[in-house]
Amino acid sequence: MSPNRRERIRALAALGRDALRRFSTLHEVATLLGEVILAFARLLRGKARYDAADTWAVVQASGAGALGVVTLVSLLIGAILAFVGAVQLLKFGAGQFVADLVSISTVREMAAVITAVVLSGRTGAAFAARIATMQGNEEIDALKTLGVSPVEFLVLPRVLALTLMMPLLYAYSCAVGLIGGWAVSVGMLDLSSTLYWTRSADALEGTHFLLGGSKSVCFGFLVAFAGCFHGLRAGRNAAAVGEATTSAVVSGIVGVIVIDAVFALCAYALDV
């Protein structure tokens, strides 16, 4: 066999192996998703077994625990949007439309996306690290020998907590983002406070909140699911926790952007 031909076969084999690996990952994702749905059904029937104290701790960490960082990031995003918008809009003598720009982009896009990205780095990573550490310490094995599904005991509480907390954080982020925009508009662009809030109220529609809120629910589920998924499939060595955490953050953020793009396409198609 000629070297060129051998090279081509090797490249083809590598491509095949990569495709099979990706297909196998997809299969694992589908399996975990199915298990989460079944665990949720058991929860609704009152048959799920989980640790209430741990669940409450997760709710607190994912919700109230994230307020500080969400406040800072949302405030700055609102302010940045106002600045960037003002620079362009003032050229056309349309500075008062900064309020429209800040309010619509915050409520419709940025609040949900930025909150999800922040929580992917904070909470999603924490979920992955915690579960991967449990995997390495044989705690997951211990749960299995007690006849308890790790999905029911560890994954479901985390997925539910973040799916429920994300819309609340989204609403909070919207409010803080608008305040950030207001501070720049009033403090630096000489826009009156009343004009800013009036224009914002006029610009915003219920569909903007509906769109942003729906996204935040999907993002919450995705970030928690990615964290738990990578934690559960982690190896049992010291490096595995770091690898699981990195993978959880990367897939969480990429997933958020992809879902946001899908929402944008759907909104465009539906003329929302």
């Binding site: 550490t133 310490n137 044989e138 020998t145 007690l146 006849g147 308890v148």
Partner: peptide, 25 residues
């Protein structure tokens, strides 16, 4: 089952660890 590294749940006290099988089963 006693695992090689004991596999105690790190967020629970020793008493809570021992109570866990009773709570679950």
């Amino acid at each position: 089952v006693l695992f090689q590294g004991a596999a105690l749940f790190s967020t629970m006290t020793l008493a809570e660890n021992v109570m866990l099988p009773m709570r679950l089963n």
